[in-house]
Design a protein around this nucleic acid. Sequence first.
RNA 1: GCUCCCAUCGUCUAGAGGCCCAGGACACAGCCCUCUCAAGGCUGGUACGAGGGUUCGAAUCCCUCUGGGAGCGCCA
Length: 465
Amino acid sequence: MTVRTRFAPSPTGMLHIGGVRTALFCWLYARRHGGAFILRIEDTDRERSTPEAVNAILEGMQWLGLDHDEGPFYQTQRMDRYGEVIQQFLREGKAYHCYCSKEELDEMRAGQTARKEKPRYDGRCRQRKDPVPGVNPVVRFLNPDAGSVVVNDVVHGPITFDSGELDDLIIARSDGTPTYNFCVVVDDYDMKITHVIRGDDHINNTPRQINMLRALGVAPPLYAHVPMILGPDGAKLSKRHGAVSALQYRDDGFLPEGLLNYLGRLGWSHGDQEIFSLEEMTRLFDIDDVNKGASALNIDKMLWTNQQHIMRATPERLAQYLLPQLAALGIETEDLAKVAAVARAQQERARTLKEMAQNSVFFFRDVTTYDEKAAKKNLTAEAAPLLQSVRDRMAALGDWQATKLHELVQAVAAESGAGLGKVAQPIRVAVSGGSVSPPIDVTLEILGRDTTLQRLDRAIAACAA
RNA sequence: GCUCCCAUCGUCUAGAGGCCCAGGACACAGCCCUCUCAAGGCUGGUACGAGGGUUCGAAUCCCUCUGGGAGCGCCA
């Protein structure tokens, strides 16, 4: 049996972190087993579905590299097929028309609630023979009254539901359009899905879906209900923290593999290993290693994970992501080699590409002001002669290379009797404007001789002032 | 209210009866390295929700409780 998984978001909002992780698990499982990953857009709710949301899903999946083998399929384009199955159910006596009005239903539920019962449809239209004039009926699925349904969940183990708990759910609205639980069943069947991997908020829908699958005469797929993701405070994900679009993480400077690694480690693990390449995760992932309990987002660890991936990425690849981050700061450059060099110099001191860009502005833009504290401490009368000496020697330096620059700075420090820091730090302030930068030799090499000399001159002048 | 799910450091987790007076990671503190910031190394503190069983022995199995979550729509 070839594995076929699907990710089936509804385009009613953004693609958030929880959806991304579900998609990742589906994708990983399919890839691991050489199966197919199918993308399906569940847009039957025409009121709330938007083309923007569809695009955000597609774009997010593409950015993350979670490529699908089939689809995207849109439920709104499969209406004929749903209608066909509804007619079949009706014909076979597996579904029936219900003429109950909204008021009648409300009243029934109010009574049940008052009696402390679970609100559910009581099947009063099951026996009805004649249509009610002037009422467009809904179609309800006829659920078995007796027995039980057991969901053999891959992560939870067997879960048993008493059939009495399940009522006759509506599969077609009075306007004829099919509803969610029904569409899922038809789709999963038609698309030959073997493993339904989804959030565990769907556990309670599963027995109903299994009953419909049985009515269709087919064996249900394997189900794997993965735990939900909570906000950093342990409460439900809200807009305040994680429930932002996946694309927001891209804009915030996350690497796809960084985000995916963090999300993958939420609810899944492989011994003590924390950092996984996508290839490793694909090789190691197994759905029954997934935890049962919900897990809370931890932004610090997410940032740390991303940093680990930045450190492992090639400078060239980083440059590609750094470019738009620089552009966001108003820095347009064509010099890819320089951007890559900056990325290499910065890659172990940035948790996100955005942070890297922010800390690298001085590589691309003139230093016109100094950080006040840094200048006060380093651009002093005492530092002036050291900077002058450095400046003169640099002007005369043969090869403008980090190793040579390092020797030069070291020589000045040795001759002056001051520590290396006494020399390096003023240079750092001079060329970067602040007190933090990559190692000074590497920094100067990237900056080049002209820029360096010019910034040193300016700093020497500032020392006198 | 009813049904279902879940429960190890603050957080993510390892742990499938003895290897655990519980291991790793993030965060935090201290130290080392060091031209800054990082990265890296070392050290430290903090957890098996509670109560009952089963067993020679339980974080691991069973029961009850407590706490959290989800579902109960002509939403998905």
